[in-house]
Simulated assay, not measured.
Amino acid sequence: MFGCKHVATPIDLNHKLRCSSQRATVEAIKYQRLVGKLIYLSHTRLYLTFAVSVVNQFIHSPYEEHLETVYRILRYLKKTPDKCLLFKKDNHMRIEAFTNADWVGSVSDRRSTSRYCIFVGDNLVTWRSKMEAVVARSSVEAEFKEVTQGICELLWLKMLLKELRIPTETPIRLYIR
């Protein structure tokens, strides 16, 4: 894909991938290898995590539409070869968390995807993006579940820093979108 054109985003956020498609299936082993490499790469390139988690949902029965989305991620990587995870020393130990949930985000099974990310200083230290096991009855329920997960992770991080005898500034900030 050296000669391909690059794209501005790794995935089209308005397009919803489906389990079944009008198009033909693709070779599963090739698709699995590509997605596996993208999963490995997303550990140091956090901005790819959401896009890779979307294509990973179709790892067992991929269609052309799914493979085209993987190729789009690769075209995006061509544009951003120098972006990666960077930790830097800060003068403050402020802890901030950002949470978000999309109610009924999956077109195929109507489940919500919840996500959060937590910063210590200006460094991202933990994150999660997960499709819920059950369908939420309302957007409030989906948001409540995600806020609960974010708070649990914040409490765990606070206890960990306390055990390591690392002083933190208070209060911990939680932003809900």
Rank of each mutant, 00 (worst) to 15 (best):
M1C: 02
M1D: 02
G3F: 00
C4N: 09
C4R: 02
K5Q: 12
K5E: 12
K5P: 12
H6S: 15
V7M: 01
A8W: 01
I11Y: 07
I11V: 11
D12A: 08
N14T: 01
N14L: 05
K16M: 00
L17Y: 02
L17C: 08
Q22H: 14
A24L: 03
T25K: 14
T25S: 14
E27G: 09
A28E: 12
K30S: 05
Y31C: 02
Y31F: 14
Y31V: 00
R33H: 09
L34T: 03
V35D: 06
V35M: 06
I39Q: 15
Y40V: 06
L41R: 11
S42K: 12
Y47K: 13
L48H: 06
T49H: 08
F50Y: 10
V52H: 06
V54C: 12
V55Y: 04
V55N: 07
N56I: 00
Q57V: 00
S61M: 04
P62N: 14
Y63L: 14
E64M: 15
E64G: 13
E65D: 14
E65T: 06
H66S: 03
H66C: 06
H66L: 10
H66E: 02
L67Q: 04
L67K: 03
V70E: 10
R72L: 10
R72W: 01
R75D: 09
R75A: 14
Y76P: 13
L77N: 04
K78H: 12
D82N: 14
D82E: 11
L85P: 09
F87K: 02
F87L: 08
K88R: 11
K89E: 04
D90R: 11
D90A: 09
D90G: 10
N91P: 08
M93S: 15
N100P: 06
V104E: 13
V104M: 10
G105M: 06
V107W: 02
V107N: 10
V107K: 13
S108M: 00
D109L: 03
R110M: 11
R111E: 04
S112C: 11
S114V: 00
R115M: 08
Y116A: 02
Y116P: 03
C117E: 13
V120Q: 13
D122F: 03
N123Y: 02
L124N: 01
L124F: 00
T126A: 05
T126S: 08
T126N: 04
W127I: 01
W127T: 04
W127Q: 08
W127R: 11
R128L: 14
S129R: 10
S129N: 15
M131C: 07
E132N: 09
E132H: 15
A133C: 04
A136Q: 04
A136T: 06
R137K: 13
R137P: 01
S138R: 11
S139M: 09
V140F: 07
V140G: 06
A142K: 03
A142N: 03
E143I: 01
F144R: 12
K145M: 05
E146Q: 15
T148I: 02
Q149G: 10
Q149F: 03
G150K: 11
G150M: 09
I151A: 15
C152P: 07
C152D: 06
C152Q: 12
E153H: 08
W156K: 10
L157P: 13
L160E: 07
E163M: 05
E163R: 15
R165F: 01
I166C: 13
I166G: 08
I166Y: 13
T168Y: 07
T170P: 03
P171Y: 10
R173L: 12
R173D: 05
L174K: 08
R177I: 12
R177V: 09
